[in-house]
């Protein structure tokens, strides 16, 4: 596990250094032009946000039912990343919307449900920070409900009439854009894996220090 970090760091750096060049070379979308390029950041971040929420929910359920302390550390790391990548989604979305729709924000189903999901995981972090003893379990319950939200957010564009593009956009990308898009997805996924592993490891170290500290106290 530990040995894979340098490789992951290198991969993330290379991927992110190459991405802007590839995005720049990708063909321009006929009606939106330059603004469409934000798509290569917006959609991969949204994918990572969904994945991260699922990781957080599954790890939280494991913590609740199996009492697995490591699962709790993974859950808290994933919750932080859900909030971070969610913030990227919520910032890049309005930037694009201002040019494409003429407004920063529109109260449609996809935007509202994404904001709600982001708020659930932000509340998760608040509970962990300010909930006092036993807050881990409260937070875990929050994550289980947050995970239940993911499918709704994903299908919301297809069920309700919204102005947000539907999930059919990605499978029907133009050939010149497809490669660049999946490259960006790969870059974000590697970054996510790296940050998740590092963050969970930091928590594990912290737990170890805590344990050692208690042992010294007892002597």
């Amino acid at each position: 596990m530990k040995r894979s970090y340098p490789f992951l760091v290198l991969a993330a750096v290379v991927l992110f250094a190459a991405a802007p060049i590839l995005v720049d070379r990708a063909p321009y979308e006929s009606t939106m032009g330059l603004v469409q390029k934000i798509f290569y950041y917006h959609v991969p971040s949204a994918m990572v946000m969904f994945l991260s929420a699922l990781v957080c929910g599954v790890a939280s359920a494991l913590y609740l039912f199996r009492r697995n302390a490591a699962a709790d550390r993974w859950a808290s790391a994933a919750a932080e990343l859900t909030v971070v990548f969610g913030l990227i989604v919520l910032v890049t979305g309005p930037l694009w919307a201002r040019k494409a729709w003429g407004v920063w924000w529109q109260w449609d189903a996809r935007l509202t449900s994404t904001l709600l999901m982001w708020m659930i995981f932000a509340a998760y972090l608040l509970v962990r920070r300010f909930g006092g003893p036993g807050a881990e379990k409260l937070a875990a319950a929050m994550a289980v409900f947050g995970m239940a939200n993911v499918p709704f957010v994903y299908v919301s564009v297809n069920i309700w009439r919204t102005i947000h593009p539907t999930t059919r956009v990605v499978p029907t990308l133009a050939p010149g854009m497809r490669g660049v898009f999946w490259f960006a997805v790969l870059a974000f996924m590697v970054l996510f894996a790296l940050l998740l592993a590092l963050r969970a490891r930091l928590e594990a170290r912290r737990a170890e220090v805590e344990e050692l500290y208690l042992m010294v106290e007892e002597d």
Binding site: A123, F130, G131, M142, F145
Partner: peptide
């Protein structure tokens, strides 16, 4: 019931869901 700042945390947790 067991948490310290339960008055604040209840709406914080409840409303987003």
């Amino acid at each position: 019931v067991r948490a310290r700042s339960r008055d604040v945390l209840l709406p914080v947790l409840l409303y987003p869901i």
